[in-house]
């Protein structure tokens, strides 16, 4: 280990890159829409747009706030900015980061864990973007293959396939911490069709409380 290792320096660089690239990326997504409106005259209806902005904001402002609070505890700074620019956080970036930390035998929450998960998420971003590009190029032939009735169910069941494996891994890793959030999640699921914006924070919170009680007991 380098005795001059200064995590602060890298944190500063990460925040600087992130705070520049995120708003820039957001602005860039409007370019095609502006081209459509100005060059081809296909623009939105302003009255409906204002109404839409209101609807989506009422929904997304609280959801985004809660999500940011949850992911801050899980991801390093570089990982966080990458995950937000490329999206697909819970279904792609988080499982990738978790698996990479297991393969490299490091703990989430440590500096090493943050570095390992940031590298993994960079790999995840590059891979998923390439797959989407391949999807765009092969759109027509893929359509025939993926929508075949025999194999289509397999693509509809990718989330259960992903979280069956990840789930059992985490249960084996620490079943005492796993039990409570799983029970709560099942109860929430049976109670009604709540959006993940509500269920994720509840489950994370109960998971943390359970972990705290177990931690206190074992380290008393």
């Amino acid at each position: 280990m380098n005795t001059n290792h200064n995590p602060e320096k890298y944190e500063k660089i990460n925040h600087r890159i992130g705070r520049l690239t995120l708003p820039a990326g957001l602005l860039m997504t409007f370019v095609p829409l502006i081209i459509l409106a100005v060059k081809f005259g296909i623009g939105p209806d302003l009255k409906a747009l204002v109404q839409g902005i209101f609807s989506i904001s009422v929904l997304m402002a609280p959801v985004s706030l809660v999500e940011v609070l949850t992911f801050t505890a899980m991801l390093g700074s570089g990982a966080m900015y990458m995950a937000y620019l490329s999206g697909n956080i819970t279904n792609l970036k988080i499982p990738s980061a978790a698996m990479a930390m297991e393969v490299c035998k490091t703990k989430a929450g440590s500096e090493e864990g943050e570095i390992i998960s940031t590298i993994a998420i960079a790999g995840s971003v590059i891979c998923s973007e390439i797959i989407i590009i391949a999807g765009v190029i092969l759109l027509v032939p893929l359509k025939g293959v993926l929508q075949q009735p025999v194999i289509q169910p397999a693509f509809e069941q990718i989330l259960p396939a992903l979280f069956g494996a990840i789930g059992i891994y985490y249960i084996l890793k620490d079943w005492k911490v796993a039990v409570t959030p799983i029970i709560i999640a099942i109860v929430l699921d049976l109670a009604g069709d709540f959006p993940t914006a509500i269920t994720i924070p509840i489950c994370v919170l109960t998971s943390v409380i359970a972990a705290r009680i177990i931690y206190k007991k074992t380290n008393a």
Partner: peptide, 20 residues
């Protein structure tokens, strides 16, 4: 802090495990 972060991961995974 390490336990806390691990617990956060578990909380997120629990949601997606409950659904199937």
């Amino acid at each position: 802090r390490e336990s806390l972060t691990g617990a956060c991961f578990m909380g997120v995974f629990a949601i997606f495990m409950a659904s199937p």
